[in-house]
């Protein structure tokens, strides 16, 4: 037993035991360290009095279940964030003030095999949560420009179209292309090109609303999903972006470059799929290029499309 005691005290896991009245009977060093409450102060106290947050019904449900059925229960970070409110002990404290926890609860039985209490294990999963968030952000971000990537755009367009079918608010999209972008790369080098892309994305974002979803569609082509926006509003938004881009020089390393953009606008039609909507915007963009660039073209009905 002496060895078990050593494990209990030194394991890198919070261990708590409660009796049937939810009074604390055990509180290991890990718990002392992270809660700032010593075993001497907490043993014998009702756990819900020391931690009022624990009177949440989800925790009581689990403990009552374990006390009655003797099952092995889990209390997951995904659903509950944490059980015992404790400070995040890692460098990520600024980002996530509370330690994120995966907890399990199981029965403690006496010699007669009656359930006399429960044990709780507390695992610190803050690091995993931070990694997970980082990965989730990376998976939807374009590395160079910091706006959304193609993958995320495709997914959101699908979702927005479904949402609009349910609620009847139409979605519009803009497809934007930087005019003569190849020249920037060829004249000033690819690094300048990268700066131009970054500056262009930043400038666009300034002119969009927070609900608009801006992403890099590929190369020097960008796409913006405008939820709950009819075509005429999308058109004026596009025009504002175009004018602003043409009027604002972008910082590219040691020089300022002014670029212009061609923009194709398309609004959702009743039977639109993501593909058909994009195809119309793409066609409008093609027209804008064809008519001399630095302009916005708008396409409403599919019949306006002629084979290019």
């Amino acid at each position: 037993m002496h060895e078990y005691r050593q494990i209990f005290e030194t394991i890198n896991l919070g261990l708590v035991t409660l009796d049937r009245d939810l009074k604390v009977t055990g509180w290991n060093r890990w718990m002392e360290l992270h809660s700032g409450i010593s075993a001497a102060d907490v043993v014998g106290c009702q756990v819900c009095e020391t931690f009022p947050d624990l009177s949440r019904s989800s925790f009581l449900r689990i403990v009552k279940g374990v006390l009655s059925f003797g099952n092995y229960a889990s209390y997951s970070q995904k659903l509950h964030k944490f059980l015992f409110p404790m400070r995040n002990p890692h460098g990520s404290h600024g980002q996530l003030p509370q330690m994120q926890q995966n907890c399990t609860v199981g029965p403690l039985r006496n010699e007669q095999r009656e359930i006399v209490g429960v044990y709780i294990t507390v695992q610190d999963v803050t690091d995993f949560v931070i990694y997970e968030e980082k990965l989730a952000t990376m998976a939807k971000t374009d590395g160079l420009t910091g706006i959304y990537n193609r993958r995320y755009l495709d997914q959101r367009l699908q979702e927005e179209l479904e949402r609009s079918r349910r609620h009847g608010n139409s979605v519009s999209i803009l497809l934007l292309d930087i005019d003569h972008f190849k020249k920037i790369n060829d004249t000033y080098g690819h690094l300048s090109g990268d700066y131009a892309l970054r500056g262009f994305a930043a400038e666009l974002r300034k002119n969009l609303r927070s609900i608009d979803i801006l992403g890099r569609y590929g190369g020097e082509e960008f796409c913006c999903i405008l939820p709950e926006t009819p075509l005429d509003q999308a058109h004026s938004l596009a025009e504002r972006c175009r004018a602003q881009i043409a009027a604002t020089p972008l910082c590219c390393i040691d020089r300022q470059l002014t670029v212009t953009a061609s923009i194709g606008v398309a609004g959702q039609l009743p039977d639109d799929t993501a593909d058909s909507l994009i195809r119309r915007a793409d066609y409008a963009l093609y027209q804008a290029k064809h008519l001399g660039r630095n302009r916005v073209c708008c396409l409403t009905a599919p019949r306006e499309m002629v084979d290019a």
Binding site: S68, G70, N71, A73, S74, Y75
Partner: peptide
């Protein structure tokens, strides 16, 4: 969330029945 809910609720049901 669905998964976590099923795990949390499911194991209580299993515990009650098997127990």
């Amino acid at each position: 969330l669905e998964k976590e809910t099923l795990v949390e609720i499911g194991n209580i049901i299993i515990g009650a029945c098997v127990g």
